[in-house]
């Protein structure tokens, strides 16, 4: 290496360091190690989540923002396993643990151990209630309300709605449904005439909707929870009824169906869900906390909304059988933090 080249690279480094400094103390976390503690990897959403973490984490390490961003998944989806995993991560000397928890409460003991050992704990998606941890929560009720708001904007005259719910007894299902019913109360031109459980799966939804359809009057809209829109559309088609306005949930098959309908009949709708890339948001939040930034303990994840305008982009980037994803940048994380302040 010649002298001039060395000088140049040194100058480049200095410049990069200066930039990093300006971009909210990136260099301060250069020697910090962050671990992801994950309880389950058995569906497309979690797979996409892990992939996003790996990509963003590797990039952050290459850029010298953090020293390590390793992902750990428990071999079984059990709180006792994950509690042990968290304690192992403390022993391994990580500075921050980003956590998708198997239980909102059963990990509190282990999380407390981490906090007491000076480890930053950021929980997301599956959050923990331990006060010393940060929470990046999903406002599922708001998602339900937003669906009805959208329907109201498209169908000002109102009409009958069919609600497809998720897995009975799961907190997420209750929350989204509550939001939908709140929305219907506000927009009282709508009436929910039927409600079935689709378990967030296309085949289950199709069967459930096909079962209830004969007993229903004319339906103008279908409110869903994600993973169920395509099945509902198929059931309507099989019954020979007009396709109502179905709110979708970002799954690839749903987006594909939407694109086909749009090309054929000019079908227009909205698709919204939580992007698995929320893991990258959690990574940046942890980095910001490590950098000494004041971060409120409770943050809210933005939804990933797909509209008529960005449908083609979303469809092009979503692998078959997967779910639309977005990776969050440091800037978005800072925005989320400042919004919560």
């Amino acid at each position: 290496m010649t002298l001039s080249k060395m000088l140049l690279s040194a100058a480049g480094l200095a410049l990069a360091a200066g930039l990093a400094q300006a971009e909210s103390h990136m260099s301060e976390t250069a020697d910090k190690r962050i671990a992801l503690s994950n309880n389950y990897a058995g569906n497309s959403w979690r797979q996409a989540m892990l992939q996003t973490w790996q990509e963003i984490g590797a990039q952050a390490v290459t850029d010298g923002i953090v020293a390590a961003a390793d992902a750990y998944t428990t071999s079984e989806n059990q709180p006792t396993e994950q509690a042990a995993q968290i304690q192992n991560l403390i022993l391994q000397g990580y500075d921050a643990i980003v956590l998708n928890a198997a239980s909102p409460t059963a990990l509190n003991g282990a999380v407390k151990e981490a906090c007491d050992a000076g480890v930053i704990v950021v929980s997301f998606d599956g959050i923990v209630t331990e006060p010393c941890a940060w929470r990046i929560a999903v406002d599922f009720a708001a998602m339900g309300r937003e669906e009805v708001d959208y329907l109201a904007s498209r169908l000002p005259d109102g009409g009958n709605l069919l609600e497809i719910r998720g897995l009975a007894g799961v907190f997420v299902d209750d929350e989204i449904s509550k939001g939908i019913h709140d929305g219907v109360e506000v927009h009282d031109q709508f009436k929910i005439v039927g409600s079935v459980h689709g378990d967030w799966a296309q085949d289950v939804s199709q069967k459930a909707v096909a079962g209830i359809l004969p007993s229903l009057p004319d339906v103008v809209g279908v409110v869903t929870q994600g993973g169920d829109g395509y099945g509902a559309a198929q059931a309507f088609k099989a019954a020979g009824r007009d396709t109502p306005l179905i709110v979708l949930g970002n799954r690839q098959d749903e987006l594909q169906w939407w694109a086909d309908q749009r090309d054929a009949t000019g079908y227009e709708t909205l698709s919204l869900s939580i992007a698995p890339g929320v893991a990258s948001l959690a990574l940046w939040v942890a980095q910001q906390i490590l950098a000494g930034e004041e971060v409120p303990k409770d943050l809210t994840v933005p939804f990933l909304k797909i509209t008529q305008d960005n449908l083609d982009d979303a469809l092009a980037t979503t692998p078959e059988g997967s779910v639309a994803n977005v990776t969050y940048s440091l800037e978005v994380a800072q925005q989320v933090i400042s919004d919560a302040k």
Partner: peptide
Amino acid sequence: ALVGLATSADANIALRY
């Protein structure tokens, strides 16, 4: 003992046991 460590419970907390 498990609750003492975990600080709270879950109906599935110890299925692995």
